[in-house]
Design a protein around this nucleic acid. Sequence first.
DNA 1: GTGGTCTAGACCACG
DNA 2: GTGGTCTAGACCACG
Lengths: 122, 122, 122, 122
Amino acid sequence: MNIVISNTSDKPIYQQLFEQISAQIIKGELERDFCLPPIRTVAKELRISVITVKKAWEELERHGFIYTMVGKGCFVASLQPNELGNKRQELAIEKLKIDIEYYKGLGLSTEDLLELIRRNYD
Amino acid sequence: MNIVISNTSDKPIYQQLFEQISAQIIKGELERDFCLPPIRTVAKELRISVITVKKAWEELERHGFIYTMVGKGCFVASLQPNELGNKRQELAIEKLKIDIEYYKGLGLSTEDLLELIRRNYD
Amino acid sequence: MNIVISNTSDKPIYQQLFEQISAQIIKGELERDFCLPPIRTVAKELRISVITVKKAWEELERHGFIYTMVGKGCFVASLQPNELGNKRQELAIEKLKIDIEYYKGLGLSTEDLLELIRRNYD
Amino acid sequence: MNIVISNTSDKPIYQQLFEQISAQIIKGELERDFCLPPIRTVAKELRISVITVKKAWEELERHGFIYTMVGKGCFVASLQPNELGNKRQELAIEKLKIDIEYYKGLGLSTEDLLELIRRNYD
DNA sequence: GTGGTCTAGACCACG
DNA sequence: GTGGTCTAGACCACG
């Protein structure tokens, strides 16, 4: 589990945590039933508050990425490979719908947008 | 000049103003040297705070979309057609760089992303 | 808006808040677009923490009972009468499914259960 | 004696133990004076802590379902058939009183509630 | 030792 | 003045 927190970003810390961990689960870098470190340990290592970690964990659980066993810890959910793919698309499309509105609003056609992405994906 | 404000959106109102007006300028719907209505009028019509309108106008001026003549009002900048195209790309790319980071983080390849956009652009 | 908090109950405070307010909305005691008091005011009056109130409000928003306008306050959602009925059933059934498992486990038949309820509903 | 433990349920494990064993006694599936297996055996088989089993056993004894003979083990209490029926009602009513408060709070009438149960009892 | 809940503060963006 | 986020503590149930 590899987390990098940016304090200068305008993205809330709990959101950064959620995005990075969910991405690692989706990419299979965290195996099913892997036990996440205790929230207090994560908090201490990242030098953030326990409550911030808790908030991210709650969001992960609500999206079905992890499950909690009180007194034991939090674990990566047992998702089938195709479920992982679905989660990936779900998250991507959720954001895409909002983003596309913006680009459309600027007057970009589908082709304009596709071309810009090709040139900026690196 | 046509503005629609959503109070329930999580996008700040001044940001909504900025995006809609800059888009109209870029698309040529607002002609160069067009005199924007007084901020107090805009505020009253949209039932929002003058401070909010002022903030949006400042943002527009900072991006070179409008210029202020003290005591006379705010006017659409005199941009050449190619400059308008540049602005459009500038704004699009500015956001695109951030967005692409997210989709990359999810593990989407360029092709995955292009395909998703084709299917969701409507 | 009428809230009574029990500190001795084993039900979390935020859960008590959620149940009481959602019930009042479902029963039409709080009209649509009614502006809830600021969370800090609620916290002070009930002598509980702002964060506890916040947690209840988040749960209410997630269930579609209220919507937030940052900087303005939180408002009762505009639900149609039939939507209110649906919410009521939703919440009831959600709990009923768990409760019935328990009574079944004890060996009570449907009729046993119905009879017990008739005798204990008051 | 047949026990199934769910680690992901939000119901405490000792509570699950208590409910399942008391239900089996009430339904006559465990005969009077039947000797329960040693708590260490139960703990090992269910892969849970001895402390947890002990807690469930204490709860069973407090409710009069089992009795302990120090050094010999724990035994199913000698309950008359009518006493078993009473225990069943006792447990059911204890929970029912709390549950009914919730459904009442939602604005459900007795008839609404009875109807919902008929439709959801399976 | 683990997560669950709660407190009493703080600073911020937005309006 | 409003909600959004965050902190550094505390006590609790469960195991």
